[in-house]
Write a protein that binds this DNA or RNA. Structure first.
Lengths: 333, 333
DNA sequence: CTCGCTATTGACAACGCTGAAGTAACGCCG
DNA sequence: CGGCGTTACTTCAGCGTTGTCAATAGCGAG
């Protein structure tokens, strides 16, 4: 049995195909009586629009690409899930693209393989080279990371959040704060967090010791935090806190400290970032910085919809907040 | 500047649009010289196929829906990520659908909103009612959960894995094994795991105590495991092991035990399931059952591709293995 | 009663691509 | 050398929808 088309519905309702189309598109130039008749015919025949046909005729696809570095990290998984659901609310389907490495990420945002989408929401892991970034062929909204003046950006309070949690460490008496990062600061989307850390140190007149900055080989994996912390312990450096770039890294750090008999928070306070579901369940529970994901996603979707509707102003930047969530891992020693 | 079409490429190459199409589709009725000329013209003009047009003409979309209950759980996140990448290898793009609740899951697999896809890969969380399940309007491959005789299934060794890890607990002297589940056994896709547990008990002549079976309110969240274990502790039941339905639940259980001063593994051994990235980083590290995800995904994609290519045999069932990974949480007390 | 306006609806032509079917040109065989 | 199968390509129609614009009806004003 053939899938019903507009023409079939039209025949049932006794109107033209175009009128059915108008009803389904919510055009207002349809009388109430016709609308009802058409909707009844649609329901009766089980009609569902064919997106290929619509796409061809209208030039829009009803699809949006969401580009994230991965989804094994709860932070990105949550973002992606929220985006999928929010976009679905607006009748848009999501094409999830994984920007594993720099090339994949670039390709997903700018390249032709992400074809036939009306827009892109982009959570960067690599920092796009500003000179290199061509104007994308469709609306792009960036979520997180340092803002690019190339397209609309939603920025969480990365700097503020990092500054606040560092301040918390300083105020509870920590002075030698190790930094466990996901790459050399200066080339990651988390540079703003690092800047926040530096600012807090400075405000407290505590010198920054580069020897306390470490990073693992594989960004964002728990194993990477573990490895980095083991390296730091072996180096013999002394420290009384570990500021981790995110919760996954912090989980690895906690494990490394536990394994080496370092007590948390008694000997070393540990903090994470992102306040993922996991942070409440590590042992001890992890202090973290909570971004306002709901709000971030809302802004991103709103801006993308505006752009897709034709808004053509200059790139915008929306800032959302972040607040510190204190748990046992950074309690006063 | 208008996006180039087949006709534009054809003009450059000096052939008909259909010939360009043939080249791009890999049809073999094209001479080598023409093929080269066409490919050069494609490269020169920066042509990219318009999927709406292709879809309309060919009746296929090049899209596949992947339905998972959520992606905040690392297990499903990994599955989804692997599927996306594997399907991409075959030129298919993925529409990720979240089957939050029973209705959403049902709708995503069978319903019309998952429209315009050539096939579906489905990771069940709810058990579809066999009588209720209509024949889906497109190929479906199920990944995990109890197999349905309705479509192709890839089953991991759920029963065997659960039996093996329960046996391990029994062999290391545990006798009162609490079961922390994600719902009442009998109505979840993890029933096979429960059956494995029962089988192991029986083989060892250990009686099953229903009082030791608990489950939290919100399946699969760490908080749910925490809550369930707190309840069990309060009940005053005595037990020397906790068999958890998955790693997330186990993480919550570990936390609850830690909080109540119960030593793991000395007083109580804890085991998880799925061997997610997290399991190596809990304190203590979590024994778990590792499914062979790579293999599962490979089978699923292969079967789906066959179906999409028109294979029309009866539903098939592929079984993959599972093996126990021992870590500190279940070491001999 | 007629004109002109608005509100509603319809006819038609795309949109870009591929399947089916057709057409040359070529080589091979009897 | 004519017929025939094969190869390499082309022509044509149509997939299901929407944008454009024309057509019609209804209605109030003059």
């Amino acid at each position: 049995m053939r899938r019903p088309t507009l023409a079939d519905v039209a025949a049932v309702a006794g109107v033209s195909a175009k009128t059915v189309s108008n009803v389904l598109l919510g055009r207002n130039e349809v009388s109430e009586a016709t609308r009802r008749a058409v909707l009844a015919a649609v329901a009766q025949s089980g009609y569902e629009v064919n997106l290929a046909g619509r796409g061809l005729a209208s030039g829009r696809t009803g699809r949006v690409a969401v580009v994230v570095p991965n989804i094994y990290q709860p932070y990105f998984a949550e973002i992606a899930e929220r985006l999928i659901l929010a976009l679905e609310q607006h009748g848009l389907t999501t094409m999830l693209r994984i920007g594993h490495d720099e090339a994949a990420e670039r390709e997903a945002v700018l390249g032709p393989r992400t074809r036939d989408v009306d827009g892109v929401v982009f959570c960067p892991h690599f920092v796009p080279d500003p000179d290199d970034v061509a104007t994308p062929p469709r609306p792009v909204v960036q979520l997180g990371g340092p803002p690019t003046p190339r397209w609309d950006c939603v920025v969480m309070g990365e700097r503020e959040g990092a500054e606040a949690i560092t301040r918390h460490l300083l105020e509870t008496g920590r002075r030698r704060i190790a930094v466990v990062w996901n790459g050399a600061p200066g080339a990651t989307p988390t540079d703003d967090r690092f800047a926040g850390y530096r600012a807090a140190l400075e405000a407290h007149g505590v010198p920054h010791d580069p020897a306390l900055v470490v990073s693992g080989s594989d960004w964002d994996r728990r194993a990477s935090g573990y490895e980095a912390m083991v390296g730091l312990l072996r180096s013999g450096a002394s420290f009384d806190a570990a500021l981790c770039v995110n919760d996954a890294i912090a989980a690895g750090v906690l494990r490394a400290l536990h394994r080496h008999g370092v007590r948390v928070p008694d000997d070393v306070a540990v903090t994470g970032f992102d306040d993922t579901d996991e942070s409440a369940f590590t042992v001890p529970a992890l202090s973290s910085v909570s971004p306002q994901q709901e709000e971030m996603v809302g802004h991103a979707v709103a801006m993308l919809l505006e752009r897709m509707a034709g808004h053509d102003g200059p790139p915008r930047e929306v800032r959302t907040g972040a607040h510190v969530v204190l748990r046992a891992s950074s309690a006063t020693s």
